[in-house]
Design a protein around this nucleic acid. Structure first.
Lengths: 232, 232
DNA sequence: CGAAACCTTGACTTTAATCAAGGTACGTGG
DNA sequence: CCACGTACCTTGATTAAAGTCAAGGTTTCG
């Protein structure tokens, strides 16, 4: 049912400035492309917010990224690894991939950005507990939006949860915890103000005590790096 | 201490076939490059296994991938996002990035493979429990090694743990659990045989239909996709 | 005003981390 | 060759964290 609507909307695209680029509008909640679609180019966010998501077999969703103004997404070749959807009303600039040599450097750049974005997602998911993940998520959002204090969170809690590998309950409780500890304040569930950046960064990096405790463990990393004291 | 050894080894590189490529040998445990190093090219695995890892502030390690014969790693530009280390003795082919137009299509290809690898890592970490993650890890290793039944696991359990976001204890217990359930067998901790592929896939949550699912994902996504029943 | 979607919180359960102890494989040197 | 040390692996008991179940509250919009 949704699919035909998207096709319609795609048909309604308007030619952009360069022939190679096209500007598209999507409304909140609309699908930009489906997981498994044949890929014929990538997108850049002009305004609004976009999410990409993949589905596990049990229906459980993994959001692989949120994309803000200037971010690129959907750079994969062949088939779409993840679906893309508009979190808010959004304007996108579309770039076609198969355009040959002229395009290759910009495609390269887009690929690099996509890789960076993927690495950021890995780094978020690699954190060990909910506090770290949510704090890091908020700080990243603040940085991406270039809004040092005020962070709009137009995505539902379920999006944040599926991005961080948590449940909406844990996300909600964690955010409430931050409010209780005076790290942030909420103006409604969709608007967050950071009160104590330092404190939030400390949480994101892990509580101080835990970090110290780990240093005393005599660097598990260096051990792991040279498992058998291999000499070079 | 390790660094000087690596530099020495780098000095000992031998010119390869095409001038643009060089073949390098690393011994088990050696560092290929450090996180934060300036990037001047990427690598392809000729033989052996390589891991890439990033470190969180607390010293906690995140392995972002294992790379087997034919895999590319270290494709990022600017500075290395992650360190790379030889899990086993390894032979690598080195590709220089700044070589201009001729190289750009192969760099593009390498970037795409790197992105795929990152996505796989996200998909592993996105799984909800230890059973799913370990089972998926084993299946992926089997597939990558093109060894349908016998999976060598030359990396220590700590590597697997840091890759999957678990502890070595949980990894060990989970593997033991699979053995107890008759899904796999171990010939020593570093050699694993899959007894019941179907069963393991069922545990991983990624049944044979997974590939198919990806092709027509319209169903389950449309629910999540239209949180407010937005009409197009 | 009512409905729908979304958010928060409390009580309880499950899962994985932590703490602690042994066990195994393997290389080194006596 | 065997004893020893080191790194690595496994397992049991306990604790901490996040998931689940359940209920009620808030926001938004028609």
């Amino acid at each position: 049912m949704g699919r035909s609507g998207v096709q319609e909307l795609r048909a309604g695209l308007r030619p952009g400035a360069h022939g190679q680029e096209i500007e598209l509008r999507f409304r909140k909640g609309e699908i930009i492309f489906f997981q498994g679609d044949r890929s014929d180019g990538w997108f850049e966010v002009v305004s609004g917010i976009v999410r990409t998501c993949r589905f596990h077999i049990d229906g459980h969703r993994q959001l692989t990224g949120f994309y803000y103004k200037g971010d690129a997404f959907g750079v994969e070749c062949g088939r779409r690894e993840a679906a893309a959807e508009a979190v808010t009303n959004a304007i996108l600039s579309r770039h076609f991939a198969a355009a040959g040599e002229l395009e290759s450097s910009s495609q390269n750049h887009a690929l690099e950005r996509a890789l960076e974005s993927a690495n950021q997602c890995i780094f978020l998911l690699g954190r060990r507990n909910a506090n770290e993940r949510v704090a890091a998520f908020l700080l990243i959002a603040a940085e991406r939006l270039e809004s040092p204090e005020s962070i709009p969170l137009p995505m539902p809690r379920s999006d944040i949860a599926d991005h961080l590998g948590l449940t909406i309950h844990t996300v909600s409780r964690t955010i409430s915890g931050f409010v209780r500890r005076g790290l942030i304040e909420l103006d409604g569930p969709q608007m967050c103000r950071i009160i104590d950046v330092e404190g939030l960064m400390a949480v994101a990096g892990e509580e101080v005590e835990a970090a110290i405790e780990r240093l005393h463990t005599a660097g598990p990393s260096s051990v792991a790096v040279h498992p058998r004291g291999e000499r070079l």
